[in-house]
Design a protein around this nucleic acid. Structure first.
Lengths: 226, 226, 226, 226
DNA sequence: CATGAATGAGCATTCATTCAT
DNA sequence: AATGAATGAATGCTCATTCAT
């Protein structure tokens, strides 16, 4: 059976007609199982990020998660399913913040800036950043995953940015109207920063916040000076 | 069998105007050896790009190169040495075009645009593009390689771009003077395009040339309209 | 399949008087594991003796032991660890019989003779004899092993023999008092017999018992005739 | 280069009707060839002794001999042939000294002692000692070689010793007449010393000369005291 | 459900041997 | 004869996956 992304735990018991004791037990068991599952996911995330998909060992994942190797197979069909599940569960929440419709009256630049800040706080500075790198690194070998990432995150993010850009263009807030055709240009520096961080942090750390401020200055014209 | 890209060895002399038979023989041998070596490099490049470092099999490399498995070890100490050699030989020439000093009198934008075109033609549209992706994907696991890439390509490219930006700023050609502090912003869209291409070309191909034209418009102000 | 010689693991409990089922299970598992381990050891002993360390194939060891190749690595880190373990477990018990303090009143020659008989019965005529040859053959390449053999077996055996010789000298039972300085002379014929057996048994089998009787005659003077 | 021991060289030219020049050339070539051959033998001896038969690499032999790998195959059919040749050429001269008929009038002990000294000087203290160890180590895997060693060296040495012992017994020089039945007892300490040296020299070096003097005292009664 | 011992296909690497030059 | 690049079978070791307990 295909791995259900982010849902239905084995052992979950939706029916509510159990005598209290057995339900508590069932809940306990289900809780424990869910706990194990998320321990596996967390451990796998670390291992996959540190070693890449092919070089990560399920043995290490199990050890790090504090479960037996066989237990992994109770929750995931195989290594690839585990990998895809991790990526999917980490990627999905990435989009939520960006998709809210632009509230009227607020300058678009502020909206974009705020969303950039959210990204930096919620993704760039966290483990999700590693997941992004993971997708870039392994995506070509997992077309299914690349497609999922495209549909779930990228396409929607691009659409949301385009909407913002259109609103900005309509209000004359955009330095260059053609930008509407290339929303990717808005996020390119974020992507670059993620990659840069993974490779060159040791030699030349990057001040993302300052970099993005300059970037937004270019997109929208200098801050406070239309 | 596959044509080894850009791999002419020094000393090889395919034309037959040799006076001495023994020298011809020696050349022939050296030529063959060099030919094999570059066949291996080309094959390995393809395999590493297609499967990633860990999952690539030297068996496949050998088969694709038309040599026996042992032959690989006559030219490279081990799998990792082969990998690093490939990356290094592909990366090094990437920088040459970008580093020429800006000739006076030409608008900087034109220089940058020309270099972007060179990059698109020489890297983006070729196998070197895969090498870039490879570095991003495997760099974290090969710090030595990341460092080499940084010193050989990135640092020099960044420095060259910074010089151009300074010249542009001095001449008032720059839309935003702060850009001088973040040369990475100039290349971020190229990087993003490389990644995008590797992951989403199937769903949403990207017109890099148009995208970069818009990008340069943002950096330098609209083309032809200062 | 072959019965593993002298390999009863501590904790194994073949007889079935267990009160708790789970303990029985645990024991069963431990038993099986121990059984496999000793099957591996036994198989490896044969292969190493037959082919030498370098030429022995773990594939053959596994097949002979009736386990999969990977199973070997559950019990031993690598080929060398397996080799050393075999030698060590076979060597260690070699010393026990020889080290008992000489009971007073018994002629030393009788003690020595009895120990020679033990050696012939317990070592010379068994697989342990092959281990001795193995040590002689591979010892120079495994200094650690040679040192272990020296400390565990040889030094102690030499000391024990020296003690016996001193007692004999004190009682005037020794034909030549200088012998006390070279306990190695006592065992040299045994060593030679082991080697001889390994190389020349086909052409000229050796009657060790008779040879050792003559040897002891030389050491202690003719039997029954002081 | 050392004279190649005991055999027809390929390219040697026994016929004497050559014009001087070409003969000189032929000799030169034959000499060179013979030189190479013995360089290979010497190198192989070292490698086989240091690593054992299976672990010795012909690559190393060639490098040490200063020839190409292929050259080895011009002189020896394969690795095993090289190994056997080495052992044989080293073993054969081992016997010469021991086989001379006992000159009348000299005490046998003196003869034996002198031969022991020859052995210590010519074998024990030289590379031949390593060859002996090599035979003990690899003999069981090379029955042909063991047989050669037996016929060429051991059987003849044993016979020679037996002859000496019989002479000694006849003259009443022997402490124990039964010794005649076990000539191996005479050489056992030498063998043991060879083995001991190879394994334990680091921990407990052995004074062979003193040890053998004591041994001979035992065999023949105390020196100078009939 | 959970375990972890067992499995065996898979892979990097070595090295004796060959053969074109 | 000599060379040494090329070969490819052989082997130690790994690790995803299974299954008896």
């Amino acid at each position: 059976p295909a791995a259900p992304p982010g849902s239905r735990r084995p052992g979950s018991n939706p029916s509510g007609s159990n005598p209290a004791g057995s339900e508590r037990q069932a809940n306990n068991r289900a809780e424990k199982s869910a706990g194990r599952r998320s321990a596996i996911v967390a451990a796998a995330l670390q291992e996959f990020c540190a070693r890449g998909y092919a070089a990560a060992r399920l043995d290490d994942v199990a050890r790090r998660a504090g479960v037996a190797k066989g237990t992994i197979y109770l929750h995931f069909r195989d290594k690839e399913a585990l990998f895809q599940e991790i990526v999917r569960t980490m990627l999905a929440p990435m989009i939520s913040a960006i998709e809210q419709a632009p509230p009227p009256g607020v300058p678009i630049r502020a909206l974009v800036q705020q969303r950039v800040e959210v990204f930096i706080r919620e993704v760039y500075a966290t483990e999700r950043c590693d997941v992004l790198r993971l997708v870039m690194a392994e995506g070509p070998r997992f077309p299914e995953l690349a497609e999922f990432h495209y549909r779930t995150v990228v396409a929607r993010a691009i659409a949301a940015i385009r909407a913002l850009l259109e609103a900005a263009a309509a209000r004359g807030e955009l330095a260059h109207a053609e930008l509407v055709g290339f929303p990717q240009l808005v996020v390119a520096p974020l992507l670059m920063s993620v990659v840069w961080n993974g490779l060159f942090e040791r030699f030349a750390p990057l001040d993302v916040t300052a970099l993005m401020r300059t970037h937004l200055d270019m997109l929208f014209g200098k801050e406070g000076a239309p």
